[in-house]
Every structure is written in structure tokens, then in C-alpha cells.
Amino acid sequence: MTTTARPIRRRSAFMRNAFPYFMLAPAVIFLLGITLYPGIYALYRSTMTGKFKLEFVGLQNYRELIVDSTFWESLYNTLLVGSLTLAIEFVIAMTMAALVYRDPWVKAWRIVFLLPMLLMPSAVSYIWKLLFNDGRIISDLLGKLGSTLGNIDFMSSTSLARMVLVITDVWQWTPFLFIIFVAGLQGMDKEVEEAARLDGATWPKIFFNISLPLLRPVIAIALVLRGVDILTMFTPVHVITQGSPAGHTETVSYFIYRTAFKSFEQGYASAASVLVLIATIILSQTLVRRFFRSGTEA
């Protein structure tokens, strides 16, 4: 080495070890601000009652909440609408992905199938509100197809109102699963399929026995991400049903929003928030670690 070469800079061992923490600190501190702080505040607020002057009531909010049928109903509705929505989205997305992934025009199909996802969820909710409710288009079209039900009031029946929520979410978010499934299927080895075909396997056999099992990790991640989003469903409820009829279509998110920002019972809503946060922590700790690859391979 000549004397003109720059010496390799040596930093203290402390600096070397601390460097990654310094790099992570701003993001982590920022995130703690929206996870740790709200958790603690919700816990504190959930033991208080009153709108302006707070009064300590201990666990009373929780005691009331666990016997509140509207809360349990919102949970039941969330799970019912959510599981239906997720199941339908999965079936449609997988069918379309399976039909399209070897198509020479796959990119064009993909853009068209993607369109509903690119509108704002609030806009999509208004589209379906107008189609089902305010514009009475769906009733009218059903009538043209021979339905004798006349003008259906979709908000008067619990199951019809739930169906509107399901359709709204399915229409907008099936593309999310579809995009991921297509990418997963395209990423698979063509030669395995080709070999199976040469061995005389039929197309459904190849798909169900080879492609689908290989796709399992991709399916799991996609369903976890979509499932979490569906469990926190809020926008279509706020825009379309507002819980009607009689609060039967409230989701847990809407229940918290309504209690806190319409009835101004923030202590009570905070108790519900704490329960939701606990559920989220349990859910995310198990799901996230199970389905996402860790950083160890780097």
C-alpha cells in the first residue's frame, strides 16, 4: 500500500454497534407514538367517564361493555360480513387468476380487473349506495329481468343491507387478491406444469394438485392482509348503512366511531378500543411471525 492511499476509517466499537439502532430510532419512535401512546391513553381513558369533566370509574365501562348487546352485535356483524366477504373475494380472485395467468393478454386483463381498487373507498361506497339505494337502479334492473319485487328497500332488511356491504367490498377489493395470486402463479416454474401435461395430467388436475399447493404461502399472506383490512371495515358502513336497520349492520370500527364521536362517550368507546387493541396484538403477533419471512436470510 502506498502512502497516498486513504486509510480505512475505523470507528469505535460503540459507534459500529450503535449505528443500526440510530438508523431505526426515528421510525420506531414515530411508530411508538401511534401504538404505545394510544394504547396507554385508551387504557387510561377507559377507566373514566364524562364528556368534559372526567371522573374515575374503574372497570365500570368494561362491565357495561360486556353486557352491551349492540357491541356484541357489531362484533358478530363484523365477523359475519367479514368472513363472507373474504370467502367470496378469494374464490373470484383465484378463479380469475387461474384463468388469466397464461393468457398472452394478461397485462391488459390485469389493468381492467384492477380498476375498482383505484377509486377511493368512499367513492366506491357512494357508487353502490346510488346503485342500490338512492338511484334504485338495481331494483329497476331486476324488474327488467322479470323480478316482481318492485322497489326493494335494501336498507330495511338486515340481510339485504349486509349484502350491499359485502358486494361493495368484494367489488372494490377482489383485485387486491387477484393481483397477488396472478403474480404468485406467474412466478411458478413453467416446466413443472409442462412435465405434468406431458405425463397426461389434465388442466384441473395440474392446477389443484400442483399449482395451488405451491401457492399456499402466497395465499396465506394475501388472506392475512385482506382479512385484517376487512375486520376493520368502516368506510362502506359510514357511507351506506350507518348501521341501519337498527344498528344491525354496525361493524366494531363503526361502533367505536359512533360511540366516541357521535354519542361522545369516549370513555366507553375507549374500553372497546382497548379490547380491540388486545385482540389486534394477539392476532398480529401470531399471524405476522408465521407468514412473513424474517430478516435472517440477509
Binding site: A27, V28, L31, I34, T35, Y37, P38, G39, Y41, A42, R45, L225, V228, L231, T232, F234, V252, S253, Y254, I256, Y257, A260, F261, Q266, A269, S270, S273, V274, V276, L277, T280, I281, L283, S284, Q285, L287, V288, F292
Partner: peptide, 15 residues
């Protein structure tokens, strides 16, 4: 960091 994605917006709305 990843798990904050799973946070329900409604649950942190009041704080």
C-alpha cells in the same frame, strides 16, 4: 414495525 400494519384505525382514533 410490521405489526403496526395490523392496528385497527378505529382503536387508535380517540387517542
Amino acid at each position: 414495525i410490521l405489526s403496526t400494519k395490523m392496528m385497527a384505525p378505529a382503536a387508535v382514533a380517540i387517542p
